[in-house]
Amino acid sequence: MTSPTPPTHEPSPPREPLFGTLAVIGPGHIGSSVLRRARLEPALAGRLVTTDASAEVRQIARTLALADEVADTAADAARAADCVMLCVPVGAMGAVAAEVLPVMKPGAILTDVGSTKASIIADIAPYLRDDVPFVPAHPMAGREFSGPDSGFPTLFENRWCLMTPTPDTPDDAIARIQALWERMGARTRRMDAAHHDKVCAIVSHLPHLLAFTICGTADDLAEETRSEVLDFAASGFRDFTRIAASNPVMWRDIFLNNREALLEMLARFTEDAQAMARAIRWGDAEFIVDRVERGRRIRRSLLENQQA
């Protein structure tokens, strides 16, 4: 008796690209990672265009073949695009939007990857057109490296992309940008821009502020002590220096453009740090253990959610 022939499965037909042409303005760490992923995933875009304000960065992008075309200006890159993604520092979003929006074709979508949403929405709002929807987004991914040679195609795998559409953002445009990030491997969630900024203030912006500050404190110590800090740095301090190696222009803009939420979280952290100081001063072992245990639980949750 012969074994039954296993059923054959026809390969799935290739998906149509979400966009005919995707323009990435600013091929830095995030932008170049988007371009690298799009090179491997034809379902994202049929054609890739990029540009940067720096001639040096544009040349690196050409050398690395990050896109089918490296345009000389943001307007040139955006002119024929079906989707324009702004991957520039937060403080530059408004100026770049003012350059690209007048030349974008009707029906094309403008989106961004900035870390502060309320300020970006406010900066871009004066230049918006009724026939070009704007979908604010923020991929919660990235490392301390910067520049077009620092990206990699799997950066967004299993990471969150938070989307903060305004009441005027059409549903179909939101769905297409959501699909773009999901095809890059990200998980997506929609939320209010102000809520987004508070969340990011505590999970991203405040930790960076603390890292920069601790490294500055170490650098201000007397020469002999500073040398010992660098010689004998344990993993905790090394983790802070990794975060503190991030792009200073990017983080300057983030701190200044999310100042209210960041200062609120800094004030709450300061109160908690003072409470811990009192516990140490007065030997309140139970309080100290409770805080350490809470930290351990958060770490376990991150590991379980594959976010660490």
Rank of each mutant, 00 (worst) to 15 (best):
D130R: 14
F269R: 12
L302R: 12
A81V: 04
L263K: 05
D290Y: 05
C161K: 01
R159T: 02
D130C: 05
V90E: 00
T63R: 14
F19H: 09
D197W: 00
L101K: 05
H196K: 07
G94K: 11
P139S: 06
A137P: 02
G114S: 14
E99P: 03
M250F: 09
D290V: 04
P4Y: 11
P136D: 09
T225Y: 08
A308L: 15
P6K: 13
E10I: 12
R15C: 10
V24D: 04
G147S: 06
T169G: 10
R278P: 00
E228F: 12
V203P: 02
E271H: 13
M1S: 14
T50C: 07
E16L: 14
R242T: 12
A279F: 01
A77G: 03
C83E: 04
R300V: 10
D284M: 01
A77T: 02
P136Q: 07
E41S: 11
L86R: 05
G283Q: 02
P89V: 09
V289F: 07
A55C: 02
N305F: 13
I25C: 07
L209F: 14
A244K: 11
P27K: 05
L263F: 13
T154M: 10
D168V: 09
M276W: 04
R291Q: 10
A92V: 11
C87I: 03
G283V: 00
L18F: 08
D68Y: 06
H208Q: 15
N258V: 01
T5L: 15
I288N: 01
T116C: 09
H208Y: 08
R47H: 15
C200W: 00
S12C: 07
S146R: 11
I174M: 10
R252C: 07
D131H: 10
S115Y: 00
G283H: 02
G91W: 00
L22I: 06
D284C: 00
T217Y: 15
A179D: 08
M276L: 15
H195Y: 12
R143T: 15
N258I: 04
V113R: 01
S235R: 13
V199L: 14
L256M: 14
R296Q: 13
A55P: 06
P133L: 15
P27T: 03
R189V: 12
C161D: 02
T50Q: 06
A74P: 03
C87V: 05
M104G: 09
M265N: 10
N257Q: 15
V49G: 02
M163K: 01
E228H: 14
A108K: 04
L155S: 02
E144R: 08
P165M: 11
